[in-house]
Design a protein around this nucleic acid. Structure first.
Length: 491
RNA sequence: GGUCUCAUCGUCUAAUGGUUAGGACACCAGGUUUUCAUCCUGGCAAUCCGGGUUCAAUUCCCGGUGAGAUCACCA
């Protein structure tokens, strides 16, 4: 297409024409849950897709709500998922500092520009006076607007009073990459606080300054900000800066679907999922497809595929519920996709205590048998304990089995004696064992359902286990012989 | 209450002005020489309601209804 072609004009630049700079800008008020992490993920994907830059900025302007250690939690959470940033508090960058509490001079400077241009004024009212304004508005069934009470001669702003934006109420329409065309009337615009009386700026003010100074191209944020966006548009105009590309992400809802996911309603620390045996690949896959899809029937996406295929215009407008069953399924899928060596590395902290002395090779062999059975890495002890420690015979388990329950214990015991004898001289690779077991079916005349179930129980005393020949081969000749003897003795 | 947003199986979603409304999770049933899991096959299950435009609406428009958000010296 030539440069001369008449193309329709839009009120924002199309994403393909610029190199994106996106940011995730959490406030350090505690751990991260899936809602916050998904916002970070989408911003990261937008940057990665077009070779852009992803920035981690910390918005710590509310000293009351700040929780010590939060920044480390946030960084650890993002890194666990595989989200890396190239500018941020810990790695620095050309627009440092990336922590708002260290940028107060910058905000003060811009605040003075607004004062000088007549677009900001000191707020002389006490909390009580403001409360009266608000109550009388409510009593008259009118919406409360601070701008109805602008002081005629505001005092000079010396930093001890809050500084308010002098808004210019009007209609707005704007395009949101996700939500489409949005519009509001002037009643959505009011005079909001720019700088608090403690000298710290409000989010409403400083995020706009920082996004501008840091060259942020795409502002992604969650849906609760949609109603405050007109105020931001008003402020962009007062500051004479271009508005960035705006993208509103739908909420992640709690499982009951009644409200957005929040810590108060039990939203888990994202790191907990790692401790519970979830893979970061599965979590990323899950979060990306919560509110986004590529239009095909693909369900499993690697980080590379997400980066290649992600686009904001396919993000859902409606909220999505957090469905842990789907996450669990995805985790199983990802566990099965990993190579044995890779899976083994990730299992380091999940083995049963009894496996502490086992060799890497022994554990790897066991792992290869249960890889298809793991839904989370935390299932490992339940599935593998009897490989590493002698199980205690429990003959009541035979009566839980439909087929075994019909057969007298003496007869079962005789079968075990036959099995022990047959396996005594068998080669002990999985294939030979299967041949031996098949022959045993012929000589005893028993159905596999009886014979195999019995042997399986006698060597594992576990409710479930891998295929019998694999299990026996992994346990080894001597262990199988001694466990069968123990079972026979306990009958 | 003002303002704003959203609405397809239970859940995540696809699609189109004309389709048997597709897939996945979950659930149910069957299969793979025992169990559990994997895997395979099958089943159940949806366009919120009412108008309008149209030959034709789930899709476009309007109005309801429902749900959510926001209305802080929080972000």
């Amino acid at each position: 297409m030539s440069e001369e072609t008449n193309t329709p004009t839009t009120n924002y630049q199309t994403p393909t024409t610029i190199t994106p700079r996106t940011r995730f800008a959490p406030s350090p008020t505690g751990y991260m849950h899936v809602g916050g992490v998904r916002t970070a993920l989408f911003a990261w994907l937008v940057a990665q897709k077009d070779g852009g830059t992803f920035i981690l900025r910390i918005e710590d302007t509310d000293k009351v709500r700040e929780v010590p250690g939060s920044i480390e939690q946030i960084e650890k959470s993002l890194r666990w998922l595989g989200i890396e940033w190239t500018e941020g508090v810990d790695v620095g960058g050309p627009y440092a500092p990336y922590k708002q509490s260290e940028r107060l001079d910058i905000y003060t400077e811009w605040a003075h520009k607004l004062v000088d241009s007549g677009r900001a004024y000191a707020d002389p009212y006490s909390k009580e006076e403001l409360e009266d304004f608000r109550n009388s508005a409510i009593a008259n069934k009118k919406p409360f607007l601070y701008r109805d009470h602008r002081p005629e001669n505001p005092p000079v702003w010396d930093g001890t009073l809050p500084l308010r934006f002098k808004s210019d109420p009007k209609d707005y329409q704007w395009t949101d990459v996700v939500m489409g065309d949005l519009s509001t009337g002037p009643e959505a615009i009011d005079d909001f606080i720019l700088i608090k009386s403690d000298g710290y700026p409000t989010y409403n003010f400083c995020h706009i300054i920082d996004d501008m100074l840091m060259g942020i191209t795409h502002v992604l944020r969650s849906q609760e900000f949609i109603s405050t966006t007109p105020k931001f548009l008003n402020l962009y105009e007062a500051l004479g800066i271009d508005r960035p590309i705006l993208a509103t992400l739908p909420y992640v809802m709690a499982i009951d679907g009644k409200k957005k996911l929040g810590k108060r309603d039990g939203a888990k620390n994202i790191l907990e999922y790692g401790y519970d045996g979830y893979l970061p690949e599965a979590m990323m896959n899950f979060l990306a497809t919560l509110g986004w899809n590529d239009g095909t029937e693909q369900e499993i996406f690697s980080a590379e595929e997400l980066i290649a295929k992600f686009s904001l215009d396919r993000v859902q407008r409606s909220p999505a519920r957090f469905d842990e069953k789907r996450l669990l399924w995805l985790n199983g899928q990802w566990i099965r996709k990993l190579s044995l060596d890779d899976l083994y590395k990730r299992c380091a902290n999940f083995w049963p205590e009894s496996a502490a002395q086992a060799s890497d090779n022994a554990k790897k062999q066991v792992l290869s048998l249960v890889q298809d059975r793991l839904k989370t890495l935390a299932d490992l002890p339940l599935l593998t304990a009897y490989f590493f420690a002698e199980p205690t015979p429990d003959w009541t388990m035979t009566s839980d089995n439909k087929q075994l329950a019909k057969i007298p214990r003496e007869e079962l015991n005789d079968l075990l004696i036959s099995a022990k004898s047959a396996l005594e001289n068998s080669d002990f690779d999985a294939e030979s064992i299967q041949i031996t077991l098949n022959a045993l079916i012929d000589t005893t005349g028993q159905k596999p359902g009886v014979l195999f179930s019995l042997i399986r129980l006698a060597v594992s005393w576990a409710p479930f286990s891998p295929a019998l020949n694999d299990t026996l081969a992994t346990l080894g000749h001597d262990t199988v012989q001694s466990r069968l003897q123990t079972a026979i003795d306990a009958a």
